[in-house]
């Protein structure tokens, strides 16, 4: 029984960054903006979180800084998609590439190496703070989306933007706000990776987590609670994978290790193949 509880707890830990990112993705996508930049937003958050936590000696400040860094990059994303009307998918991937190039560049500038930030001590790291915060965030997003004025705006912006404009509300402003907040949340997700799950930022450490968050969003049909469950599924795969790795230490089974590491990616692929796009997809998703 203990081991089941262990697995669940570790799944929750592993799912935490995904929860942040997925809530960020949910915000953007419900407002009609495809945000494939989540991966890059997380990466810059992971770097900023670890770097600031190291320099300031406080994970909380690092966490906040990560949100700000995510917001900054999200503003760039918004500028190219909303102001210059670029293709959201391509711009999203461009932002990912930018983040992938910028993080080692900054790492080198601040810490003289490109590979990783210096390792954080225990008191510079989180134990479970972000997880609790993520719980709160999921519940609030869920309520906010259904019960608040701006939640209604965001929903209509993603479904029928001209209806929103015609009701006298500026669609662009709503989308801008959604995009910026999605950057903040994704930044939080990245910081969770580098200051809670790991003890430093390392090169390309997000390893597809941003895309898994999007897969969870598709699986959860763009609704907060089911999306969070989808993230948990990925967390579960991850923690099982890690557990199996721990048990397969013998030389005979070393060859299996690599395959087991692919577990989360394969699960994501099956999720994508199984979750056929439904009527709950925001109708105006991806339109300019």
């Amino acid at each position: 029984m203990d081991s089941v509880l262990d697995i669940i707890l570790s799944s929750i830990r592993m799912a935490t960054p995904l929860w942040f990112a997925a809530m960020g993705g949910l915000l953007a996508e419900r407002s009609g903006v495809v945000n494939l930049a989540l991966e890059g937003l997380m990466l810059i958050g992971a770097f900023t979180g670890a770097a600031v936590a190291y320099n300031m000696g406080s994970p909380v400040i690092g966490f906040i800084a990560a949100g700000a860094a995510g917001a900054l990059l999200a503003i760039l994303f918004g500028f190219f998609t909303l102001t210059l009307k670029g293709d959201q998918v391509v711009i999203g991937m461009g932002i990912n590439l930018l983040s992938a190039g910028l993080t080692p560049f900054l790492n080198k500038y601040f810490f003289h190496v490109t590979s990783s930030t210096p390792s954080l001590s225990i008191d510079q790291r989180f134990v479970y703070g972000p997880t609790l915060f993520a719980f709160g965030l999921i519940v609030s997003v869920s309520f906010w989306l259904r019960r608040s004025v701006s939640g209604l705006w965001v929903r209509v912006a993603g479904e029928h933007p001209t209806a929103l404009a015609s009701a006298g509300i500026r669609v662009k402003r709503v989308r801008w706000a959604a995009v910026i907040f999605s950057g903040v949340f994704a930044g939080f997700g990245g910081a969770t990776m580098s200051t809670m799950l790991a003890s430093a930022f390392s090169r390309q450490m997000t390893a597809g987590a941003g895309f898994m968050a999007i897969a969870a969003l598709i699986l959860g049909r763009w609704a907060p609670l089911p999306t969070a469950l989808g993230c948990f599924l990925f967390g579960l795969t991850d923690s099982i994978q890690i557990r199996l790795q721990g048990q397969l230490t013998g030389a005979d089974s070393a060859w299996l290790l690599q395959l087991i590491q692919l577990g989360p990616y394969i699960v994501t692929l099956f999720v994508l193949a199984g979750a056929i796009r439904s009527s709950s997809t925001p109708k105006a998703l991806g339109e300019n």
Binding site: L152, R155, V156, E159, H160, A163, S280, K283
Partner: peptide, 10 residues
């Protein structure tokens, strides 16, 4: 100018 996924009052 009606958003189909929302209800009438919204």
């Amino acid at each position: 100018m009606l958003s189909e996924a929302q209800n009438v009052i919204e």
